[in-house]
Design a protein around this nucleic acid. Structure first.
Length: 798
RNA sequence: GCGGAGGUGGUGAAAUGGCAGACACGCAGGUCUCAGAAGCCUGUGCCGCAAGGUGUGAGGGUUCAACUCCCUCCCUCCGCACCA
């Protein structure tokens, strides 16, 4: 009774492979580039992959039926630490381990029936690919966008490597959650900050990105406009620059606070009686981890330095403090404290008995004396106690004061950005070698383009214990300087793997080219990607880096667009019992086991039907059975075809074609499937003919491709169903001959009547008022109003 | 604190101003069967025998009509955050 999914799925997977059904080539046709985030080859696909790739695949198959030339590539983000860890554990080499995983994963992806052009597969760990990582790095070096600098960097003591700011989540390593430490190291950086304005401004072009991703990127780039104000130190030539976004409150600045690490601190405390206590405080703060220090519920601690500064707007002498709540990394590492209009300053001032002065009048409060305040007022108001600016609304004063400060050299209008340059050096083996050479005579010398790729040596004594493993490979390290030919050393760090994934979508356009990273013409045809699908976890990292690389390639003259991904869909996670599936929780549902029990097609139906793509999806063992049941129900239709379907069924078919097409376009696969189910239910009530059934099979083929290929063949077709056209609906056939009029009395549903669709409003009104069932509601009561929505509804107001 | 997404039956969810709960899961009943499974059919928000009432986080408003629009508030999830 059940259809033989095992045999059918194998048969068609083989067919697609042998016939290269999904091979894509540049043509005169309209194109569609559908991209899904490529996986890290762990060896097994999980339900998250299944969901991500099913959404993409159904969309691709739909677009093909619509007549688009579809590019649907797949590859592997193959460099990275798990390969090293696995190699240590299993006593193999990362290369062998990774390739074995890739093979296993490819087999699993095939079993899902995804319509990839496997001829375009890329693996970032192949030198054909990473050669171009090195090429890009050298280009960036030439343009001054790749540079080496010694600085305080994030260090994961468990992974034994540095991390980018974007890779530090809640003070921990993004991969292993170990607390991140700070280390002073010489490292390579990419100057992503060069593009900060564009990266922010161009977000506005991305109308088809989820608003939360846009918000997260905006937040990460963190532009804030303000003024840098120069406070002169008393009895010194030095000034303390302070950054503020609230220059309107400057007249209320009653003290200054420096970060404990501020370079001026040591100087200003020298020889003062406070010196000892300040040093002790600094010592204490330095021992606190970043996480503790940045958690907002910890009490704000600080000490007086003994030094004073002058508020430049009113020449007031104000004390200089240091406190743990001021961070060296943000702004200038120093703040002007306005306790009346900043809650943190308020708490600190209260704690230490520091002076306050209200300078913005709260329109909803009578309080003008700071002693009566219970908290800072951070809202809008009119300036008071602010010299020549009194009486101005504070927003206006903000501008006026800033302009006045520029003129009188008290301060400078400045924009502060949160975005930092991207640290790309990693002290790991399994990554792209950074193509740089250190020569005692010539300094840093880039590897000549002709010498690329710098091959990753197959053997390195990595143990996971730290330090760059490549440093121990003498044949790798020792080279001749390309400039002066004297003995030199290679860079032994490798690139962060996010470098690899920042441009793979361009490589897909011409994956085998060995003269250039990608072919300009191919990229011009295919790019930008029309649709990108992947997890929200990349909202900042990968998506920001990819945007940066795209802009870089544009400036190199390789492409002529600004943004790589036109439309973005972030799919929700797959949960089991309300929790994310994970090994540690032991709640993993293995796609393979589902495929062997119900088939890939049923799995595809279920994962799309259970929830809309963006929301979380609760895995349900009974749900997958329902999906399987549905397919079997469709299967049985073939035994009961009749010569001619009823007009009602035909009408429903046209409606369904319209509805399902529209739903597909918007990724509403759950309601598209519901529409198909309704259609199938109707076919069970009134048998289908061959045309009706064929159209059902075509529509369903995007979702359950093997199943529908088989039915298509059973229906007598020679060609693959992937080559047919999406059925057209007839607008005229959508019109019903009868309309159901919902009748309300005072907005409440009281009755329904069937009327011929072509009746005039007056005729319908007559029929409505004659309705027997209305008697008990309207009899003897005057009708005050009669609302009529043609073809739909009548509302009688009494 | 700021930003984003949400809150609808026993469950997953539909409906973007016009019949709340489509479609499915579950449950109940029927049919078929020696029996069971599968299949097929019917019913299923809550209260009520029924007539009817009531119902989309809470409260208010706009409207002939509100899950949908406006205001006030509560709650959940996600991201960022002593960001000056």
């Amino acid at each position: 009774m059940e259809y033989n999914f095992k045999q059918i799925e194998e048969k068609w997977q083989k067919y697609w492979q042998e016939n290269q059904t999904f091979k894509a080539e540049v043509s005169g046709q309209k194109k569609f580039y559908c991209l899904e985030m490529f996986p890290y080859p762990s060896g097994k696909i999980h339900m998250g992959h299944v969901r991500n790739y099913t959404i993409g695949d159904v969309y691709c198959r739909y677009k093909r039926l619509e007549g688009f030339n579809v590019l649907h590539p797949m590859g592997f983000d193959a460099f990275g630490q798990p390969a090293e860890n696995a190699a240590i554990k299993n006593k193999t080499k990362p290369d062998a381990w990774t390739h074995k995983c890739i093979d296993e994963m490819k087999a699993e992806l095939r079993h899902m029936g995804f319509s990839y052009d496997w001829g375009r597969e890329v693996s970032t760990c192949d030198s054909d690919y990473y050669k171009w990582n090195q090429w890009i790095f050298l280009k960036m070096y030439e343009k001054g966008l790749a540079y080496k600098k010694g600085s305080n960097v994030n260090w994961c003591p468990s992974c034994n490597t540095t991390l980018a700011n974007e890779e530090v989540i809640d003070g921990g390593c993004w991969r292993c959650h170990t607390k991140v430490e700070q280390k002073d190291l010489e490292q390579w950086f990419l100057k992503i900050t060069e593009y900060k304005e564009q990266l922010l401004d161009d977000l506005e072009q991305l109308n088809n990105w989820p608003s939360r991703v846009l918000a997260m990127q905006k937040n990460w780039i963190g532009k804030s406009g303000g003024v840098e104000i120069f406070f002169k130190l008393k009895d010194s030539q030095k000034t303390i620059p302070v950054f503020t976004t609230r220059v309107d409150t400057i007249f209320g600045a009653t003290y200054i606070v420096l970060a404990p690490e501020h370079p001026l601190v040591k100087e200003i405390i020298q020889g003062k009686p406070e010196e000892k206590s300040v040093l002790k405080f600094i010592e204490k703060v330095s021992k606190e981890t970043k996480v503790v220090r940045e958690s907002s519920d910890v009490k704000k601690e600080g000490v007086f330095t003994g030094a004073y500064a002058v508020n430049p707007v009113n020449n007031e002498t104000i004390p200089v403090w240091i406190a743990d709540y001021v961070l060296m990394e943000y702004g200038t590492g120093a703040i002007m404290a306005v306790p009346t209009h900043d809650q943190r300053d308020f708490l600190f001032a209260q704690e230490h008995g520091l002076p306050m002065r209200i300078v913005i009048a709260n329109p909803k409060s009578e309080i003008r004396n700071s002693k009566e305040l219970n908290e800072a007022y951070e809202g809008e108001g009119v300036q008071i106690n602010s010299g020549q600016f009194d009486g101005l609304p504070n927003q206006e004063a903000k501008i006026k004061i800033a302009e006045w400060m520029e003129k009188t050299n008290i301060g400078k209008i400045r924009t502060h950005w949160r975005l930092r340059d991207w640290l790309v050096s990693r002290q790991r083996y399994w990554g792209t070698p950074i193509p740089m050479i250190y020569c005692d005579k010539c300094g840093i010398v880039p590897v000549p383009y002709a010498d690329l790729p710098v091959q990753l040596p197959p053997d390195a004594p990595f143990t996971g214990e730290g330090g760059s493993p490549l440093a121990k490979v003498k044949e790798f390290v020792n080279v001749k300087c390309p400039k002066c030919n004297s003995p030199a050393r290679r860079e032994t760090d490798t690139m962060a793997t996010f470098f690899d994934s920042s441009w793979y979508f361009l490589r897909y356009c011409s994956p085998h080219l060995d003269q250039e990273p990608f072919d300009k013409k191919e990229a011009k045809y295919w790019m930008p990607a029309d649709q990108y699908i992947g997890g929200i976890e990349h909202a900042v990292l990968h998506l920001l880096y990819s945007r940066f690389f795209t802009k870089f390639f544009r400036d190199l003259g390789y492409i002529d667009f600004n943004e790589p991904f036109k439309r973005l869909l972030t799919q929700g996670m797959v949960l089991k019992d309300g929790e994310v599936m994970s090994k540690s929780k032991g709640n993993i549902v293995d796609p393979d086991s589902i495929i062997s029990r119900y088939g890939a097609d049923a799995l595809r139906v279920f994962i799309l039907f259970a929830a809309p793509p963006e929301t979380e999806l609760e895995w349900d063992d009974r749900g997958i059975e329902g999906a399987f049941k549905f397919l079997n129900r469709v299967w049985r239709i073939q035994d009961n075809l009749q010569a001619k379907a009823s007009p009602d069924l035909l009408r429903l078919m046209h409606k369904t074609i319209k509805r399902v097409g529209e739903d597909f376009e918007d990724f509403k696969f759950n309601t598209a499937i519901a529409g198909l189910m309704e259609f199938v239910n109707a076919i069970y009530q009134s048998a289908a003919d061959k045309e009706v059934f064929s159209n059902l099979v075509i529509m369903l083929s995007a979702i359950a491709p093997h199943f529908c290929e088989e039915l298509w063949q059973v229906l007598g077709n020679k060609e693959s169903i992937t080559r047919v056209e999406w059925p057209k609906y007839d607008q005229n056939l959508l019109i019903e001959s009868n309309a159901t009029i919902v009748i309300q009395v005072n907005g409440k549903l009281r009755s329904k009547i069937e009327v011929p669709a072509d009746l005039s409003a007056d005729q319908v009104k007559e029929l409505v008022l004659a309705d027997e069932r209305l008697k008990q509601w309207i009899e003897g009561k005057p009708i005050r109003n009669f609302i009529f929505v043609p073809g739909k509804l009548a509302n009688i107001v009494i």
